[in-house]
Nucleic acid binder design. Structure first.
Lengths: 84, 84
DNA sequence: TCTTGACTTGTCAAATATGGCAAGTATGAA
DNA sequence: TTCATACTTGCCATATTTGACAAGTCAAGA
């Protein structure tokens, strides 16, 4: 049912961002907490833009976020509505 | 055992690239075949660079590739060695 | 009201991803 | 050897991410 083929760029960026925000909140972290746990520097500006779906983050940026959130990268990258 | 915390940028890019290449070959596709299946244009140059881990692709580019390969994005983003 | 914390958003500079083209490498077949 | 296919890599121009800072919004308290 997911009709992935027609998913627009803005849509998947929004889903990725929602994933990041949801996991961050589940861990009880603020954006400032999160960047504090990230190895090489990431700005809260960028976190905010990613969570809002305003930026098309690189995989390495998302990977660093996944490390700080202590979840697999694939969890952040879960954009599928449902699997058969 | 995965020691994700110390994974360097070049290492995760290499794994992402290996994932793309492996799945593409499993599907019996050439790079030219692959770009032919991608909605908005992607150059074989870029596919090659991603597969070789030479470029830090954006999530939207990897998403379009996952669509063309008919696999979930999370499969391309599977960089974990093994899960506990 | 004032303050604080959390987040968003604008702007800027620097780095780099992307698309495009051309040239090079490698393999296999004729 | 010659040719074709598949892929890699260098270069270029353009677009955009990223890091950084400043300013703004919003909600909860004191």
């Amino acid at each position: 049912m997911s009709n992935m083929a027609s998913m627009k760029k803005s849509e998947i960026l929004k889903i990725i961002g929602q994933n990041v925000k949801r996991i961050r909140l589940e861990k009880g972290l603020t954006q400032v907490d999160l960047v504090g746990k990230i190895e090489s520097r990431i700005d809260t500006t960028n976190i905010s833009r990613i969570e809002k779906g305003r930026t098309n983050a690189t995989i390495h940026t998302l990977f660093r976020i996944s490390q700080a959130l202590d979840v697999p990268l694939s969890e952040i990258c879960n954009v599928q509505e449902n699997k058969s």
